[in-house]
Design a binder for these strands. Structure first.
Lengths: 205, 205
DNA sequence: ACCTGAACACCGTTCAAGT
DNA sequence: ACCTGAACACCGTTCAAGT
């Protein structure tokens, strides 16, 4: 490309993504309270009103960030489950470990995702992305039911039990409510194993 | 009392509590984002710097609010459990229903309580209050183990399983992540029953 | 279309002062 | 001791303008 023309400034066409990236970094570094639209704009190298061309409000930017978080969480769960072909129990445990581990690695994003009722702008899409996590768990459950490993119930109910305890564990851990070393991957695995073990025991036929 | 003297203004000696009350009302009405120290002061009828005589920062005020929330949650759980003398299973279900119902009635406070890692000022006490909820559940578990209803495990582990799923359910419901009518008390009860049933089935010997 | 700069109505926090 | 008022450095959002 020539040194002139449309690519002159560096925030050529993709300010939308540059803003998301900057906001994500800020969130990770400073927490939810540290994210200001003005600082995000500053980091992206634009004026503090420029973001309004891409997001209708600060809430909309945060909602987009949450939506991206949901997709990543879902991907982490599914990838972990697919990597384990040893039947639904092991898949469920793998998914649980992935869930909690993802939460521990990205506490601020998780907090953002589940922190506000989806009532602000754009939160509709974020809410849908969140429910898709539930759908992902449901697919594991259905496989478990069909193979006869899990009890014959609505897959939704079993998925709810699984989601509920994994989510609760993730939230309590990231909130610092449980006496455990968050930096130790083994500790996470042990904890998930204990909880998942009970869930599976209750679910199995 | 005479119409003069120390009670002249109405915010006599208990500004501390007046601030907490105002902040609580504001939180309930507007959510976490709606709570500003200046508005709290305004409602309490004092200047916007007066709160600093009672709380070192906005974060400290919120931490105090969270601490009060933890105590109320614990009280709700214990009261519900004690009201049911039909053995530990029923007590656990009653506690779970109380937990989720309390969360649904006070979504903003719950969000505040579990929303931020206790790292800000005063959050030490709030964190301790939170862990006391866990202790409350533990006491129910111990009774269950001693009576032979629950499996012989560390009460802490069983309490963790119970807390984890109840908390996860409460958080998902208040986040609007589950397709249910939050205003319907029966729906809450049904949902808790389904989850608690599985937990108990897994826990029982 | 996309971005800017000034402007408005807010914040949290500090500090010198008042009683 | 307890409270006030001015001041500082920030916000989110709007709007008229610039290219």
């Amino acid at each position: 490309m020539a040194s002139d023309g449309t690519t002159n400034q560096y925030h050529h066409g993709d300010l939308h993504n540059a803003l998301l990236t900057a906001a994500g970094a800020l969130l990770r570094e400073q927490g939810t309270g540290g994210v200001s639209l003005r600082e995000v704009a500053r980091r992206a190298g634009v004026s503090h009103t420029a973001p309004y061309r891409h997001f209708s409000s600060k809430a909309a930017l945060l909602a987009a960030l949450a939506q991206r978080g949901f997709r990543q969480l879902e991907a982490a769960i599914m990838t972990a489950a697919e990597r384990v072909p040893h039947g639904p129990e092991q898949q469920l445990i793998a998914a649980g470990i992935a869930y909690v581990r993802h939460a521990v690695s990205n506490p601020e994003v998780i907090r953002l995702m589940f922190g506000e009722t989806p009532e602000a702008t754009g939160a509709v899409e974020a809410g849908a992305a969140g429910r898709q996590v539930f759908t992902a768990l449901q697919s594991i459950m259905e496989a478990g039911i069909q193979s006869g490993v899990f009890r014959q119930r609505e897959a939704g109910e079993l998925a709810l039990v699984a989601w509920t305890s994994m989510h609760g564990l993730a939230m309590l851990v990231t909130a610092g409510m449980l006496p455990m070393d968050t930096t130790d991957p083994d500790a996470v695995e042990t904890l998930v194993g204990a909880v998942a073990g009970n869930v599976i025991y209750g679910i199995s036929r």
